[in-house]
Design a protein around this nucleic acid. Sequence first.
DNA 1: CCCCATAGTATTGTCAACAACATACAAAAT
DNA 2: ATTTTGTATGTTGTTGACAATACTATGGGG
Lengths: 242, 242
Amino acid sequence: MTFAPKETLAIQIAQYVSDKIIRSELKAGEKIQEERLAEELGVSRSPVREALRILEKDRLVEVVPRHGARVTEMSATFIESLFDILGELYALGARRFAERSTEDDRKRLRAAQEQLNQAAEEGDILGYYRAFLEYSRAGLQGSKNPLLEEMLLGYLDASMRRAEYEAVSIQVGNLKKNADFFKRITKYAAREGNGEMAAKAARAFFDHEKEYVLKNVKEKQRRTENNSGREERTAQVSFKKG
Amino acid sequence: MTFAPKETLAIQIAQYVSDKIIRSELKAGEKIQEERLAEELGVSRSPVREALRILEKDRLVEVVPRHGARVTEMSATFIESLFDILGELYALGARRFAERSTEDDRKRLRAAQEQLNQAAEEGDILGYYRAFLEYSRAGLQGSKNPLLEEMLLGYLDASMRRAEYEAVSIQVGNLKKNADFFKRITKYAAREGNGEMAAKAARAFFDHEKEYVLKNVKEKQRRTENNSGREERTAQVSFKKG
DNA sequence: CCCCATAGTATTGTCAACAACATACAAAAT
DNA sequence: ATTTTGTATGTTGTTGACAATACTATGGGG
């Protein structure tokens, strides 16, 4: 039994809304009204307001001074921008890892890579995602750049989860391909200590991921344009082709 | 201090505090109390609170749930982290500029580079800083990555200004050296269209800048340690529980 | 028919008071 | 003297009311 320190209301609300956005229950471009949200949660507007500012930090919402808050859009150019930056920063992390990691760091990274591989083999998507997070955490820890760690694990993580969610659930076939990327990154970063190649491998992964997400998002948009109206978040698992 | 009624109070307050932090009138680690600040400005606590959240986004302050807000520290490792990341992102911008800029973009960049050069020749520090900002804006615009633009011009800009301010005012001798870096970046990015070399040149600039800032900050710290007459009015470090 | 003024409503911005929590300090216990 | 406990005080968290601003719809003039 751990005595949980009471989180502030604003933080809990931010978490709540964050989840909703990532799950697309709150859709891109949708307006978030303070009063309504406050009433829905049975709180006053102040913590709601603060929650919106917190979410703004992770670029999940955008607040315009006298017009309120909206869920940020996920346009193709945004996704492209995002993955471009992610790739670059992840590459920096990989390079620094190769240069500055301790033996413990490398051990942890290799272990995470094992997990990743295994989840890919088993087609365990949730496990794969967890392993990916652990891998990133391990890698960033070993790269000895606290700011980078904070940034990537913070808003970029949220944005990425959101992008991937919007792009429809990950396909099993893609898992193994992804796992191979991490195998390469690990090889250069944690075994050979080759920073340049590690960086390159990291970039390659995000380039691949970018294309994958873009393709799916575009397809999704085309679909929603055809049968216009509201299709909401009804589980549309059935339109993937291997 | 009188506030015009066009921008929101919170935004004006954020601006006000931001300036104070960058000018070191509010020192690293110092606590910011809502009530006091509100009284100083003749407003209520609500907009002050919001301002602090806004500043948190730019990593100028850090708010801990029930302990209030403090000005973020500027340790050596933070500066190193920061310039590492800045260099990488700026390099990405340079590469993309080389690949995707229009002729107008390139013209604007070259013009900014001219300004930069001139300011360096004249030893005009403020003009140099303005030109640097214009150069960055032009470059980022041409790199066609809106998110990158927002990030670099946003909190990274604020952090960087702060770092440079803390590092003592820029020395004139350094200006010309810096201008040379931009000459190189411009050459590759806007004349030869060589993305790889442009990225490399951008990184080189930030590596140089990092060393420069670090050297000065360390020197400054050494100085204040020696004659530590009056210091630390709100930095009782007494962490108890984990 | 369209444009534009304008009133009325909805929504955000700010305030002041109160509640919950953290900190500082003094008294008591060992 | 050191630790613990209780109490007082200061600071942050939350609320509901009010003010300022943006939005919508209705009606009049071109």
